[in-house]
């Protein structure tokens, strides 16, 4: 994995600090071209991994990248699925079964029958595979070396202790997509224990890691300890704690830990370049 990864929250009206800011961002990134302009700045600056959700609009970005292979030669996607609100809204509207039918059927030829059969036989793993295929369709032909499960699902499964899904997810991602499975979580120490128990070795885990301990369940000390002592590939997100920590202070802290990659989102050239420079600076000291 690259040292610096580029996130997508800013493009889709996600801001953990301010709904007002989130709304103004979603106005600014109304069209795909405005998103592409920012991705191009990142790409030109050498930040070539785009960690994104499977939001409907990512599909348009995929199309643009696919149709300009020369320009985006080294550009990689790290998809994170599922885009939770899409499912949550569907479950509210149509129930769990209705939502499953909706997302397993539209995906591809033959999936309607497969989906129906999987539902009828309560074949959870089969359903999971169909849902992954449906989500991954938009990335066909693009580079996706790591494929993530979003924290809302990872943490739900973690709480329910449904380990079999983690095991089968990791296996399917490796076998079908020739990619590494990744996991987002807000509960790093607990998840790491469970994944190790599941035999998923040296897992890629992306979690909030920041100087003020925001959204670090188990506490900052516990995080620092597992990062120092355990074998896994950590990615730090929420390093600025949604802007609560000044950039230099935030990155000095994160760069001082044994972390493989740092993901951040930004909307302006200045912020993108400054963040990159600060990471490189603190990496070198």
């Amino acid at each position: 994995m690259d040292r610096i990864l580029f996130g997508d929250n800013q493009f889709f009206g996600v801001n953990h600090m301010s709904e007002e800011k989130a709304r103004s961002q979603s106005m600014r990134f109304k069209d795909v071209q405005s998103i592409m302009n920012v991705l191009d700045i990142a790409n030109d600056a050498g930040i070539r991994t785009f960690m994104c959700t499977t939001h409907d609009r990512i599909e348009e970005i995929c199309n643009i990248v696919r149709s300009n292979p020369a320009h985006y030669a080294d550009f990689k996607f790290y998809p994170g699925m599922p885009y939770a609100h899409k499912y949550a809204n569907a479950v509210t509207e149509e129930g769990v079964l209705g939502a499953l039918k909706k997302f397993t059927s539209g995906s591809m030829l033959g999936a309607i029958a497969k989906g129906g059969k999987a539902i009828a036989t309560q074949d959870v793993i089969g359903l999971m595979k169909l849902l992954i295929d449906a989500e991954m369709k938009m990335f066909e032909g693009l580079s996706t070396d790591v494929i993530f499960l979003q924290n809302v699902l990872v943490d739900l499964l973690l709480g329910l202790d449904l380990r079999k899904i983690f095991i089968e997810y990791a296996r399917y991602i490796r076998e079908k997509y020739n990619a590494e499975p990744g996991f987002f979580t807000m509960n790093l120490p607990l998840l790491l224990d469970v994944l190790e128990d599941c035999g998923i070795e040296n897992p890629i885990i992306c979690s909030s890691i920041n100087k003020i301990g925001f959204r670090m369940c188990g506490g900052r000390e516990a995080y620092e300890k597992v990062i120092e002592q355990r074998r896994f590939r950590p990615i730090a997100m929420s390093v600025f704690a949604s802007g609560a920590i000044p950039p230099a202070e935030a990155l000095e802290y994160v760069c001082g830990l044994k972390i493989e990659s740092i993901v951040f989102g930004a909307s302006s050239r200045t912020n993108i370049l400054n963040t990159k420079e600060l990471i490189e600076h603190y990496d070198s000291v």
Partner: peptide
Amino acid sequence: LYTTELTKPVWFYLR
């Protein structure tokens, strides 16, 4: 005042 300073930590986070 932002959520980062107003929120108390919990033992487990979901949603």
